[in-house]
């Protein structure tokens, strides 16, 4: 039976805390132009019918329970695709006061698709990768995700005493 799961992956899309860039791109990617239906992909609006959960955006303290609930409603075997860097690590919003991080903090993730937002080809590639993983899963499979290295990039704070660094450099010359 599980070999048919790979042939008809139905996708449900959940907007966690995204800036909507990834959402618009992902929905546009499912239009007739890119023809995702040739892989059997159907976009369903209901987690109870879905096989693949596509999450865009990072998780915050308010919506982590909602995400967990949506994930639990999908009947196994299921796969999760984290669309965009926000869903992978928190991305642009990683050090916001309310953001918990990537969606792997809440649910197990199978495929990370990098990009801000990812290209349509990368999105389709991500879905196809998830289909490959889904084929190997059975009803009992538990997914474990490795911790992704999170690098937070922000400007260093200025030391208090160097009030005018520009003039100091000039005097050295």
């Amino acid at each position: 039976m599980s070999k048919f799961t790979g042939k008809s992956p139905w996708v449900v899309h959940f907007n966690c805390n995204s800036c909507n860039g990834c959402d618009i791109e992902f929905l546009a990617c499912l239009t007739p132009l890119y023809d995702a239906e040739r892989f059997g992909v159907l976009h369903v609006g209901n987690p109870k019918h879905a096989d693949i959960l596509v999450v865009t955006g990072s998780v915050n303290k308010k919506n982590m329970h909602v995400l967990k609930n949506v994930y639990d409603q999908i009947p196994a075997p299921k796969a999760v695709v984290a669309m965009g860097v926000c869903a992978a690590t928190g991305g642009l919003f990683a050090d916001c006061y309310n953001v918990v991080g990537g969606i792997d903090k809440v649910i197990p993730v199978d495929v990370h698709v990098p990009g801000c937002p990812p290209k349509p080809e990368a999105m389709l590639d991500g879905i196809v990768k998830a289909v490959e993983i889904l084929k190997k899963k059975t009803k009992e499979t538990e997914t474990v995700t490795e911790e992704l290295p999170v690098v937070i990039v922000k400007p260093k704070e200025l030391p208090a005493e160097t009030a005018a660094p520009a003039t100091a450099k000039e005097s050295e010359k």
Binding site: M1, S2, F4, T5, K7, S8, G40, K48, D51, Q73, P75, A76, P77, K139
Partner: peptide, 16 residues
């Protein structure tokens, strides 16, 4: 044969 695959897939899924 896509609808056939769909139905066979549905029968292989977890029962909720």
């Amino acid at each position: 044969w896509q609808p056939v695959y769909d139905i066979l897939k549905l029968f292989g899924k977890q029962q909720i």
